[in-house]
Write a protein that binds this DNA or RNA. Structure first.
Lengths: 201, 201
DNA sequence: GTCTATACGTCGATAGAC
DNA sequence: GTCTATCGACGTATAGAC
């Protein structure tokens, strides 16, 4: 499940630049990555990049915006496919989707997760809203399960943060070269998370 | 439980500079924080800071090194106090200690957690070794509990990363001004984590 | 589209007065 | 101890040739 953005030409220069920026931002951080770093990684001069982008800040915004919009629409699609299932099945499905997305698009997920502090003004507000929209998908599901008597948590907010942080951190430790595939990690994690909130555990 | 480093004079200029650096590194990131930023926050000129430190890189190292050494020795002390307790009690104690440390020294914990990528060469190796030493405390305890038949996990590494990431992320979301005290969060989290690996759940 | 050249600010760090 | 002054490197971004 490689995420393909609508309208992307995977071989275009724009896409190469964006993917290179994602790699460098994830590895060294946005502030420590210079336009010249990105340019030399794609065998161009720094001035040439400005033909494809407005400035460095907009490049970061493009990356974060795209990933979050993709993540949200994918989560909504996943839940709508499961709309007749139990809350527990929906939670497992959502966890698997989240882990797969964070595993397959690991570098972009890392940028989204670590570079929020690099945003200012309206950019920050815009990304905050997208994050809140995604969080809402999870909290709605937890509340749905609770009102159906399927889930129980001593403290809703603590459980919510526990689940969200557990699954987001996958992007920080998962290694593609490791023992487990993304799908295997997703399956194992779905059980862990379900156990955390399920009533009859 | 405010962590006091041995030999610190809490009112010294050095300490003020270090605490200011921790705050700025946590908020904006190491690369995005200039020496002039730190200096103006402590009402000095940038040149004056060099009377107290060798360079910017060493300031970051000092912060990360101190926090990790403190974290490790505190965890060891916690476990040695509990050396006659069950593995489950030890795990709960370790979780509580970790959450309290990450809650009380939140900014330093964030710097340690997010600025590893800003280190190079021997600095990186040195911090990596400290992190591994701390991780070893946790994995030893999980293995001890498993061999005693108290803990069970389908996949040791996945469970280990789940627990570690769950508890480290506390530093990312905890707000001192919020509804819960650090101790309350620590207690609630200890139950969650224990449930994840306990046999008779 | 990609380049060379460059403007202009800010960076980390040092020299040396007080 | 703290300052002013300054160095040289490097940052983003633009102008304009090809």
């Amino acid at each position: 499940m490689k995420i393909i953005y609508v309208g992307d030409d995977m071989n275009s220069v724009e896409t190469t630049i964006i993917n290179t920026a994602i790699t460098l931002f994830a590895k060294k951080g946005y502030a420590a990555t210079s336009i010249r770093d990105i340019a030399s990684s794609v065998d161009m001069k720094s001035a040439s990049l400005y033909y494809y982008m407005k400035n460095k800040k907009d490049l970061l915004m493009l990356i974060m915006d795209r990933y979050l919009i993709q993540l949200i629409s994918g989560a909504e699609a996943e839940l709508s496919e499961l709309n007749t299932a139990s809350a527990d099945e929906k939670l497992k499905g959502l966890i698997k989707y989240h882990v797969r997305s964070h595993g397959n698009e690991q570098l972009a997920a890392l940028v989204v997760d670590t570079e929020y502090r690099s945003l200012e003004g309206n950019d920050r507000i815009q990304i905050k809203q997208l994050r809140k929209k995604y969080e809402k998908i999870w909290t709605n599901l937890l509340e749905e399960g609770e009102s159906e008597g399927v889930f129980h948590f001593e403290d809703k907010h603590v459980s919510y943060f526990a689940i969200i942080s557990l699954y987001t951190c996958v992007a920080h430790w998962y290694r593609n070269s490791g023992r487990l595939s993304v799908d295997e990690v997703a399956d194992k994690y779905a059980i862990l998370g379900s156990n955390m909130v399920l009533c009859n555990k």
